[in-house]
Design a protein around this nucleic acid. Structure first.
Lengths: 109, 109
DNA sequence: AATATCAATCGCAATAATACGATTGATATT
DNA sequence: AATATCAATCGTATTATTGCGATTGATATT
């Protein structure tokens, strides 16, 4: 049915999946990397950096904003996008928790 | 067009996005958590653990296998799924690299 | 006031993902 | 040989995602 059965999973499992989904596109990875590299906000020149149309970039930014990873400071007619440090920290912790689990015994060798 | 323009991004950006996509569903998170918790392989009883039909679970396992996170040891008629430690380590490093980047200056406050 | 600039949104087309019933293929079990 | 068990795959329905041209709304600029 193309619709995820979120009800049957824990809130945390859904949150991890949602955060992962936000990272599940190379354009959004590129956006995040760019914003991190510039160590500050970057305005609409993201469109110039990315090989995608303005409408497409805007949509990716919207998704990252929706999940909370970015927040946009409106300064018309420009918009400045920044990493939301709180959510970024949350993501760091949440992914860290999964990956720090060691696979000590593995029956498949 | 519903198809990601992978050509215009770096291999690494695409790999990160692909790994994230593998984690972008609560069922797959639950599968990984279960396999990690049991610290060893788990067989078809994943179907009992998850509130999804056998066909659906099989499909999620296939995706995780495809990206490399799992490998299945066939022992008919059972199949034992394990975390592929090499790929798991790769994912740990690749996500670690992103998240260790500090947001030192942030113009949006 | 007219114009230029920027970013969000709409509308559309095409492809991907989610879910599951039913079937199939393979191997133990009897 | 007949049957039971397990997991993959097929087929199908439904929804989500990706992408962009075109439009819209808002604010500077002239």
């Amino acid at each position: 049915m193309g619709v995820t059965k979120t009800q049957v999973f824990t809130e945390k499992q859904n949150r991890i999946a949602d955060l992962a989904k936000a990272l599940a596109h190379p354009a959004r990875i590129a956006i995040i990397q760019h914003l991190l590299k510039e160590k500050s906000c970057v305005c609409g020149d993201l469109v110039e950096v990315l090989p995608l149309a303005q409408a497409t970039v805007s949509q990716h930014l919207k998704e990252l904003k929706q999940i909370g990873i970015l927040h946009g400071e409106i300064n018309p007619p420009r918009v400045c996008y920044c990493i939301n440090e709180t959510v970024w920290q949350e993501a760091k912790v949440i992914f860290g928790e999964i990956f720090e689990t060691e696979v000590s015994v593995n029956c498949c060798g």
